[in-house]
């Protein structure tokens, strides 16, 4: 793999497990063991019931597009090579929304409400980005 020149995630004590699961192509988020709420981004307590008990539960990887934009302006040299590209907020079936990219879809076919599924993209040995593609598209 040629060296990846784009910005990398910046894991913290809270978010490191999320990125480690992504590296293994697993989309996992913290699920409260007391009230069942799935939270994202990662945190030390459940923001609903303040329980400190949680597990890194496996997500279905399926959801719908909540909103989306297309970058035409390139913020730096790396992005100059990939514009135009789509960034979206995807609402997962389990509830949480996450910022991501929509791939494997013509930009003019993207729409709010479109069903999508996760597709991991290995960018370095340490990181895989959870991107999304139209549901059922190979």
């Amino acid at each position: 793999m040629t060296e990846y020149a784009g910005p990398l995630p910046t894991p913290t004590i809270d978010t490191a497990p999320f990125w480690e699961h992504c590296r293994k192509h697993e989309l996992r988020m913290q699920k409260c063991l007391d009230c069942g709420h799935v939270r994202y981004p990662a945190s030390v307590i459940c923001p609903k019931c303040y329980s400190e008990n949680s597990e890194w539960a496996s997500m279905s990887g399926k959801g719908t597009i909540y909103s989306w934009v297309v970058f035409h302006q390139a913020y730096g040299a790396f992005f100059a090579g990939i514009v135009p590209y789509a960034v979206a907020i995807v609402e997962l079936a389990e509830g949480p929304r996450m910022l991501t990219n929509i791939i494997a879809c013509p930009l003019d076919e993207i729409d709010i409400g479109m069903p999508v599924e996760v597709a991991f993209e290995d960018i370095t040995a340490e990181f895989a980005l959870p991107k999304f593609r139209p549901l059922g598209k190979p």
Binding site: P9, Y66, V69, Y75
Partner: peptide, 29 residues
Amino acid sequence: YGRVNSDDAAFGFVGAPAGYAMAARRHMK
């Protein structure tokens, strides 16, 4: 104004306009 370094930036979500554009798109829909 030129900083690029975060989990959001890994998805190319950088600069001030994108978040507001995301909200505007939702309003349009």
